[in-house]
Design a protein around this nucleic acid. Structure first.
Lengths: 304, 304
DNA sequence: CGGGCTCTTGAGACGAATCAACTAGCGTGG
DNA sequence: CCACGCTAGTTGATTCGTCTCAAGAGCCCG
């Protein structure tokens, strides 16, 4: 449990959580450089808080130091976790339904390191993965041994819907950063579907909207040029964060250029060139993995 | 009720149906030219049958003549209908479940002429369409007023799964030939989902395998060249017919070159050129809308 | 038989891939 | 703390594949 936010003490945990959400919401429109300074200020406040908290003892101190490191890391990478109510599962979170105690929800979360293979393709399908924080990608390996990414998954997303019919995982699932996922067993979900109408409707909606997304992706592939595809991709990231309650013009790309290129059916050089092109057009400001959307409407227009 | 197979008299209908299915199954391996002759023989037998059927009166005669025209048309285009047990809905056909009488099933079928718009995009979603015979396409119209096809649907397929989450039809649905569809109301299906486990599982499988198909399509788009895409497309048609109990190396393209091009994200000239290329390689034999697969393995290899 | 389609084939234009060189960012170890 | 190497990312020159434009062939239908 070195990775991820996982203190044993639930009171201190809540404080961490509140400040964390605050930071994500209050500062979401602040530019990259400013952002860095605020993190320092935040950490100072945080250290003071620890100093005067009478709960502190040797053991929690160690936990805090571990957490602080993680929080710092997380903030630096501007990764985020969705509060459970913004999850694609929404208020119907299975752990919550099964057992309404917070501790139990936390116990359901599994932690994975960067680049860890979570699931290998063609292994038996038993459970879905719902991302709490971090990011995943799914991909298949083609006969000529290179990979084809067919989805990026961000906090709140559910992975594995395509496996219901095949009973095996059709894709490899791999973490892009340190990632916390909730596991959701298919059988458990089905028993809830039978007893609760809202769960049934939710699952149908998830499946249906997944089909919808793929239809849009197909449309993107089949008639858009490289720059249009890239614009669509970046806008879809923006939309995704927005829908999960993190609307910000600052976007951190969790995936490498190579992954983006692979996903969009282009080559890495083309991505690079077109990012520069969008920057020249004053639509984006790119700095490594960070993108700032300078002209959202132009971005939307370009992506059609 | 001019189009489609829709006699009022169920005894005569059954005979038509049996002969129709016979023809589809007995002659499925026979080449195009031979096929034409058998249709003539079949029609002669059919006329004799009518002559000595004591049920005939003025009214049924008219119905028959209408139907004969349609049957002739249908056979000439080598269209086919799936017996209900090969439908994607399978043995769980809702009309059958709701009311086990044949007449009632027939009443559920709606008939559409070639190129008829069955559903306009963005209209309220109430029911799925399951194809009995013929073919449909679904497409969206882009802002610059040209269409993007995102699916062809053949007998046994269900259309509209993506609309569950949006509550509106996301695509226009248009018939490619004269088409018979079974209508399936969403509410009816949901009430069956709640009461019958096998229906529930079927619906989940349908949704999940639809996601699966789109994943494969995305893979096809993002890293295959024109000839590979075309090979994949033709093989997928072959597989589709095979799964519905009509395995034949003779394939009739229900859609125009323009539709194929649009669907595969290519231009009509590229389709034409690559069909010629596949013919030169002795993989296919193309004659207008008819394709004969000369080398199935080579086709599969090319499509990866 | 001609008019309107769809489909095929050819020549040149354009966009993305490829190959190659170079730069920036990052962690590692001295 | 800096030098080092490694990887990720950028930029340029050339090649290759598909699109575009254009003309002609085949087919259905009145």
């Amino acid at each position: 449990m070195i990775y991820g936010l996982h203190p044993q003490n639930s009171r201190t945990f809540i404080v961490v959580r509140i400040m964390y959400i605050m930071l994500n919401n209050v500062f979401k429109y602040i530019l990259l450089d400013l952002y860095e300074h605020f993190i320092v200020i935040f950490l100072l406040i945080f250290v003071l808080f620890i100093k005067y908290d009478n709960l502190i003892n040797q053991r929690t101190m160690i936990i805090f130091s571990v957490n602080m490191q993680n929080i710092f890391k997380t903030l630096r990478s501007k990764s985020y976790s969705v509060p459970c109510e913004f999850c694609s599962i929404g208020s119907l979170c299975i752990p919550i339904l099964l057992n309404n105690k917070l501790d139990n929800i936390l116990d359901r979360k599994m932690s994975y390191a960067k680049d860890e293979i979570i699931v290998k393709a063609n292994t038996p399908f038993t459970k879905f993965y719902i991302i709490h924080s971090g990011a995943l990608k799914t991909f298949v390996t083609t006969p000529d041994n290179n990979q084809q990414i067919n989805g990026f998954y961000l906090p709140g997303d559910i992975v594995g819907l395509d496996s219901i019919s095949t009973k095996i995982y059709n894709n490899n699932i791999q973490s892009l950063t340190n990632t916390l996922v909730c596991e959701l067993y298919y059988d458990e979900l089905m028993s809830l579907v039978d007893t609760q109408k809202n769960v049934r409707d939710m699952v149908f909606n998830l499946l249906s909207s997944s089909i919808n997304n793929y239809q849009k992706l197909v449309l993107c592939y089949s008639q858009k040029k490289a720059d249009e595809r890239l614009a669509t991709f970046i806008y879809s990231l923006y939309r995704h964060y927005e829908q999960r309650g993190h609307s910000s013009l600052n976007i951190k790309l969790m995936m490498s250029r190579a992954d983006i290129a692979n996903y969009l059916g282009l080559k890495i050089e083309t991505i690079s060139r077109n990012l520069s092109k969008l920057q020249e057009k004053n639509i984006l400001s790119v700095r490594g993995k960070y993108i700032f959307i300078k002209n959202l409407n132009a971005l939307i227009d370009l992506g059609n």
